[in-house]
């Protein structure tokens, strides 16, 4: 981020659409170690702050007739709660705090990443990969704990003809293990692509003749990105619910 100025340095059209995703230390020029305070730290901390402001301070009055911030917090709560309940059923409701954590983190990170000069933590495969692997491992372990070997019934399509079942089982197993990959790349890819495209359009703005069109395109992309930010958080959360449902009720 903050490297758009490089285009101006050599006068020509130089695009650095990916520079915004570079992880760099916030203080000093050192190496990026495991505990170095980086822009990742900053923007994740801001995510936490936003969530606390919205969900804790926003609801501090506990009003029967809610204020605006309390309404938003209640809407988020109701939205995710209903999603968990609808998809996983009554017995999935006890996992609601985990899914709410994932949803709020992704949603707020996505939206914070849309601020100019921001760093989008959810555009990194390291972040979304960990999120997806956490969901995958949790769901798999939960499935075996809850259902024992019966969890393997998820891969054995009992409604299919017997001859087809081994083939289907193979496909099911592959698709099961591809889940965390698609789950993480979908989110990171969406966030990265939108931001990169905005940067490319921004690079074109250096040419005076194209700049009005460029600004129009950036505006349009920005609107689309707002939509994508919300939708990707929703998609990640609802897929988590679907996987959770598979773990709780593995029968097809």
């Amino acid at each position: 981020m903050a490297t758009e100025a490089h285009g101006a340095e050599d006068g020509g059209l130089v695009f650095h659409p990916m520079d915004q995703f570079i992880v760099k230390p916030l203080f000093g020029n050192g190496d990026v170690g495991a505990f170095t305070i980086t822009n990742v730290t900053l923007w994740m901390a801001l995510t936490v702050v936003c969530i606390i402001v919205l969900l804790v301070f926003g609801t501090s009055r506990r009003a029967i007739v809610p204020s605006r911030s309390q309404s938003i917090a209640e809407m988020m709560y109701g939205f995710v709660y209903k999603m968990v309940e609808d998809v996983t059923g009554k017995d999935g409701v006890k996992y609601f705090p985990y899914i709410m954590t994932l949803f709020m983190f992704i949603l707020v990170s996505n939206f914070l990443g849309l601020l100019p000069m921001a760093f989008t933590t959810t555009s990194h495969i390291a972040v979304t990969g960990v999120l997806a692997m956490m969901v995958f491992l949790a769901v798999t372990i939960l499935g075996f704990v809850k259902n024992g070997a019966g969890f393997l019934g998820l891969f054995w399509v009992s409604s299919a003809p017997l001859a087809l079942r081994p083939i289907l089982a193979l496909i099911e197993v592959i698709s099961y293990f591809v889940r965390p990959v698609s789950h993480s790349i979908r989110l990171a890819g969406n966030m990265m692509a939108g931001h990169a495209v905005i940067k490319v359009f921004a690079g074109f703005a250096a040419i005076a003749a194209i700049s009005p069109l460029s600004i129009l395109a950036i505006t349009a992309m920005y609107g689309l990105e707002i939509l994508v930010s919300g939708i990707q958080a929703y998609v990640f959360a609802i897929l988590t619910c679907v996987y959770l449902k598979d773990a709780l009720h593995p029968s097809h």
Binding site: F35, V40, L55
Partner: peptide
């Protein structure tokens, strides 16, 4: 490693706050 460390810290904080 840096991102994963901060992500886990962030998630734990968010989880406990929520």
């Amino acid at each position: 490693d840096n991102q994963i460390v901060w992500l886990l810290i962030t998630l734990v904080v968010i989880y406990f706050v929520l």
